[in-house]
Design a binder for these strands. Sequence first.
DNA 1: ATCATTTTGACCGACTGTCGTTCAATTATT
DNA 2: AATAATTGAACGACAGTCGGTCAAAATGAT
Lengths: 197, 197
Amino acid sequence: MLAIIVDKEQKKKDIALGTKALILQDGINNITISQIAKAANIGKGTVYEYFKNKDEIVFELVEILMQEHNERKEKQLSLHVSTREKVKSFFSFFYADEDKELREIYKQFTAIALSSTNKEMIAFQTECYILYEKWMENIIEEGIAKDELKSEAKELVMGIFAFAQGTFIMSVTTSAIEDLKQKIDTQIDILFDLMEK
Amino acid sequence: MLAIIVDKEQKKKDIALGTKALILQDGINNITISQIAKAANIGKGTVYEYFKNKDEIVFELVEILMQEHNERKEKQLSLHVSTREKVKSFFSFFYADEDKELREIYKQFTAIALSSTNKEMIAFQTECYILYEKWMENIIEEGIAKDELKSEAKELVMGIFAFAQGTFIMSVTTSAIEDLKQKIDTQIDILFDLMEK
DNA sequence: ATCATTTTGACCGACTGTCGTTCAATTATT
DNA sequence: AATAATTGAACGACAGTCGGTCAAAATGAT
């Protein structure tokens, strides 16, 4: 019973990870199921034992990579002391080299999610937003508790997170943004100058 | 020489607008070229005289609707007096009923743009960002000139605009956000409380 | 001016190739 | 023997192509 279920989940992950390189290189829209099957060393039909369609593979992949990322990031955040540095670290996802792959996958996933009505995808997006908003909330509240920040700062959590989302979309849809790290840091610095006591 | 001379640009617009209802209702991914041709009262082959592929139709549509929107919005903005109200008016795109159709089309366009390498699409996105950032910049600078805002506010223009983008993405990809107008207004109010002298 | 001829662009839908998806047959596992 | 997993051949849908038709406009002859 359980053993089989675990195996299925694991195999699903294996297939997704097996096609990661291909998806990163060409984008899910530019590769075929046959290519995917070949990359994962399985038959074409087997793909459909584990995924309802192509898009689901990207979904699985983003879930895997996101989880890994979150674990890494959680540790990373705890290393910083000042609230400002924590926020900056939080935003490093948008430019850090180590997150390059996840950014590309997340970009492709966003494109899919925007034109899909899949309940689970929407639920996943919602979960992510809630998680990150919670993180941000904790960071800001800690700053307020340490008397670093004004109490109004707490209300800006949603705004700060929306800023993050928007920055991401802008950075991946245009070539207009150079030196993203610099720009993000400036925004955080100015905002903190306003929020700090 | 030329035989029948049709205004190609105009016809392109006519076709795009002729399929607007269909695209709004079912989404570009769920309709066929044949349906599009039928909706626009032309033959299937003719579609390809004006568009390279399906996605280009959404692109044309977003360009048309965006231009109309910008003209409307520019007038709207000039009606407001206070900087805060202007910013709020700027953001009303994300929840106003009159912009509902454009939001849906823009959502579909974003999905396309995220997985496309089409130069013109990227250029269009960039243009939009630049235009809106400029609007925001003018609003904020006016506020500073009127001595309503601290001078640091100017540096936050990019951040405010990124916030707008992110808010949009979050609102269209999840069901998590209720009462969007309320939430946006709160963010603006808190931020202005910090930015005002 | 009138008419015949030629040229050209607009338009079209049958056709083709591709590819996502299904399914009956086969192989592996318990 | 029964059940589960795997497979690739076959299917069907559809995007995009292409050869051909048509009517308007240009040209030219009378």
